[in-house]
């Protein structure tokens, strides 16, 4: 514990995904699965930007305390005093994106050609909308002094 008395150097790290913030705080070291190999990042690392592979990101807050996070890929940016990890929320790959793009196109075409659509919810909603509009019209009538 003798060495623990002096100030240990820390670096601020933020781990975020598009849907939420995962971790934010000062840590002694970060381990991340870089695309070209495992990275261990200490404070004052040179600026670096890299893609991450799916895997475990581990932050070492102190000698005894460290937290692991699983990420399914993402991006890591290092500035000397700030490390940012942008985590993907799902496993992403070029071909998966391609399929999704095709799907969106097909959906548009299908919906454009098929005009029948779903009725149950739509009719119910139309009826309710009618009722609301009726109320509003009645109200307008009344205000005019009917």
């Amino acid at each position: 514990m003798g060495k623990g008395e002096e100030m240990t150097m820390t670096v601020h790290v933020d781990i975020v995904s598009a849907e939420k913030e995962i971790f934010s705080g000062s840590v002694e070291m970060i381990f991340a699965p870089g695309e070209l190999g495992e990275l261990g990042i200490s404070p004052r690392h040179a600026p670096l930007i890299t893609k991450l592979n799916p895997g475990e990101v581990r932050v070492k807050v102190s000698a005894t305390e460290s937290y692991p996070f699983y990420i399914s890929g993402g991006l890591l940016e290092i500035q000397p005093h700030l490390v940012t990890i942008l985590a993907d929320t799902a496993v992403r790959a070029k071909d998966i994106d391609e399929v999704a793009a095709l799907d969106a196109k097909v959906k548009a075409e299908e919906a454009l050609s098929d005009k029948s659509g779903k009725i149950d919810y739509a009719t119910a909603q139309a009826q309710l909308q009618q009722a609301v509009m009726q109320l509003r019209t009645l109200d307008r009538f009344r205000k005019r002094g009917g």
Binding site: E19, T89, A90, I96, D97, A100, A101, D103, K105
Partner: peptide, 14 residues
Amino acid sequence: HLHDIVGIIKIMLD
């Protein structure tokens, strides 16, 4: 979810 909208973004980016 983000992956729901990846498809149409891909169309535009392409």
